[in-house]
C-alpha cells in the first residue's frame, strides 16, 4: 500500500510529507523504542513505528534508509523534529492509536515485518 493510504487507515496526521514522498509504496514495518535494535537489522523496513518523539528517530530513519516514521499515542512532536524530517526528506506521521493497534491495522492490510534480528542476537 501507499503511505498516503496508511495516513487514512490509522488515521494519522502528516507532520511532514510531500505528495511524492507520500506516494511511496510500502510493504514492511518495524516497531521499536530502541534505535540500536533497528540499526542492527539486516533488512531495512519501509516504516518505523515508535513511541519516541525525539530527533533521533528521524536521524535513525535517515541513516538506515527508512522512508517513514510513525509516532504513536499522539505524543507531541516538537517543530524542530518536523524541520529535521523535512531536511532529511523522511515522512513523519503522528497517530492517536496505540502501537499495538497501529501495527494490527497495518498487518491486516498486508504490511509485514522485515526478517527478525537473528543477526543482532548472534553478534
Amino acid at each position: 500500500m501507499r503511505l498516503s493510504e496508511v495516513v487514512d487507515l490509522l488515521p494519522a496526521r502528516v507532520v511532514y510529507g510531500t505528495d511524492s514522498l507520500l506516494a511511496a509504496e510500502i510493504g514492511t514495518a518495524a516497531a521499536s523504542d530502541l534505535m540500536s535494535d533497528i540499526l542492527a537489522r539486516v533488512e531495512v523496513p519501509d516504516i518505523l513505528l515508535t513511541r519516541l518523539n525525539n530527533t533521533q528517530v528521524v536521524r535513525t530513519a535517515s541513516v538506515f534508509g527508512i522512508k517513514a516514521v510513525i509516532v504513536v499515542r499522539g505524543r507531541p512532536i516538537d517543530p524542530k523534529i518536523a524541520e529535521l524530517a523535512k531536511q532529511e526528506e523522511i515522512v513523519l506521521l503522528s497517530t492517536e492509536s496505540s502501537l499495538f493497534e497501529s501495527c494490527g491495522k497495518l498487518y491486516s492490510n498486508g504490511v509485514r515485518s522485515t526478517t527478525p534480528t537473528e543477526d543482532a542476537q548472534q553478534a
Binding site: D33, L34, M35, S36, D37, L39, L52, N54, Q56, T60
Partner: peptide
C-alpha cells in the same frame, strides 16, 4: 529513554 544505551552500539559498529 531516548532510544539508545542498550549495549548494542559497539557490536553494531563491529558488525
Amino acid at each position: 529513554e531516548l532510544g539508545f544505551g542498550a549495549g548494542m552500539g559497539l557490536s553494531n559498529i563491529n558488525k
